[in-house]
Design a protein around this nucleic acid. Structure first.
Lengths: 190, 190
DNA sequence: AAGTAAAATGAATATTTATTCACAAATAGA
DNA sequence: TCTATTTGTGAATAAATATTCATTTTACTT
């Protein structure tokens, strides 16, 4: 008997993400995905029950991946500033490398596909960051302001820098990353 | 004869935005829009040639509106810090008050509806801000870093704060706005 | 108050898109 | 090499959605 080629799942994911970056969740059709993946329409249905499941599986797959990546090399025992820098640089690099994924995840959040559970998953991954910020405030190294504000500062900055990098081809040299961290650190330091 | 009720256009826009916040551009149908607006499906076609035109008109309408709002009370003759604060507070208040609109505009950018022209419009409205930042750097009040970085800092922060406000019900008191500006000013000041 | 022209309606139709399915191609094991 | 079994194909069908249109309602004009 013939064996299922599991790499096709990756190919389908990649095709879907590529299309979504261009035309959004609103613009994709199963036929387009299949064409982009160089498969017949029907083949997609061998790997996924239907389009809805494909979208949901893709979301869960990415969520897992991106959360792991954020904390690569992160060691909460190190000084606050070092920890923050690690997180900032990781987040920025990941966001640039996975811009398509980000576009999809944002659109998914306001789409007919999202489930109530998926809406809640997002919060938990932030816990280690929250702890870090609390510690920073305790040590009087970080301004005594709400975590929402600090988190918004970081996340928003990273998002916009990645967007400038992708959309306006703003090259992100290591010097610029360095300067950007200096900026964000000045913002949060006490 | 009966006269066209131009306010219906507003009603249709509002219904569309409301739906998009929930289910995204991908989730809207003309039937749903009509129902939300308490109109018959066919009525939508009296005001708009088709769904595509409705979406595009809505985008242009919002683009015009939000650009105007950003500069309300803005006077480039005032000191840098005052100018920046004005822009920050305007941007934040607008983004909170028009969150639905923001969701739509972001999705529109990655959707099958966007035209090439619409992609470019976005840049021009930023000109007065760019000028302000250049002046700040000249006067040595603002860090000598790229405008993309400074702009990303502001825009990203505003976006995330507005998101926290809407999604997590983070109340945005005038004290918090004050603190938030202090944070962002510390980030950009030389 | 009657006439009329345009707006409003929503069921009917056209179009697009998702999903199925009969058949063809591939491959693991005998 | 042959066979059995599952994958892969893409045209056919089903389902969802956009759009039209015959009919009704409204409100302006005379």
């Amino acid at each position: 008997m013939r064996v299922k080629d599991e790499r096709k799942i990756e190919v389908i994911y990649e095709a879907t993400l590529h299309l979504i970056q261009e035309v959004g969740i609103a613009g994709i059709t199963v036929a387009k995905i299949a064409k982009e993946a160089k498969l017949a329409t029907g083949t997609v249905y061998i790997y996924f029950k239907n389009k809805e499941e494909l979208i949901n599986q893709l979301y869960l797959h990415l969520k897992k991946q991106t959360t792991e990546n954020l904390f690569v090399g992160f060691d909460p025992a190190e000084p606050i500033k070092v920890c923050m820098k690690k997180l900032f640089v990781n987040a920025l690099k990941n966001k640039m490398a996975s811009f398509k994924e980000g576009v999809f995840m944002e659109q998914y959040y306001h789409s007919p596909y999202i489930s109530q559970e998926a809406k809640q998953i997002g919060q938990t991954k932030m816990l280690p960051i929250i702890e870090l910020m609390e510690r920073g405030k305790q040590e009087l190294l970080i301004k005594p302001i709400e975590n929402e504000v600090l988190l918004g500062l970081m996340a928003g900055f990273v998002r916009q820098l990645a967007q400038a990098h992708i959309v306006q081809k703003f090259e992100m040299t290591s010097e610029r990353i360095e300067h950007s961290f200096q900026v964000i650190w000045d913002a949060m330091k006490a």
